[in-house]
C-alpha cells in the first residue's frame, strides 16, 4: 500500500488528511495523481491547481517518480513558514 497525506488547504478542501492506496494500481506519481482526480469534481479541481506541491518519502518532487509499496506521498499548497 501507498500512504497518501494531505496538508493545510488541500486537506481542508478534500476533507481528508490521509488515505492508503494499493501500490499495484498506483505504480508512479503521475498515475496516482490521475487516479485521485477521478474520485469526483472536487478532487479534480483541488488536485489540478498549478501551485500543488508534492513530496515522496518526505522529499519534494518536481517530476514523475516510480512508487513502491510502503512509500509515503504528500500533497500540499506552497509553504508559508518563517
Amino acid at each position: 500500500m501507498i500512504k497518501v497525506l494531505f496538508f493545510a488547504q488541500i486537506r481542508d478542501q478534500l476533507g481528508l488528511s490521509e488515505l492508503q492506496l494499493p501500490s499495484a494500481e498506483n505504480n508512479d506519481l503521475t498515475t496516482l495523481l490521475e487516479n485521485l482526480k477521478l474520485r469526483d469534481n472536487n478532487w479534480l479541481s483541488v488536485l489540478s491547481k498549478g501551485s500543488l506541491m508534492v513530496a515522496v518519502n518526505q522529499t519534494m518532487q518536481a517530476d514523475n517518480v516510480v512508487l513502491c509499496s510502503g512509500d509515503e506521498v504528500a500533497f500540499f499548497p506552497p509553504v508559508t513558514g518563517g
Partner: peptide
C-alpha cells in the same frame, strides 16, 4: 526555509475569521 520547509500559516483576523496565508 520560506520556500522549502513544509510549514503553513493559518491566520485569525480581528473578527475571529481564520484563513490560510497565501505564499
Amino acid at each position: 526555509l520560506k520556500t522549502q520547509a513544509p510549514f503553513w500559516k493559518k491566520e485569525c483576523n480581528s473578527q475571529g475569521i481564520s484563513y490560510w496565508v497565501d505564499a
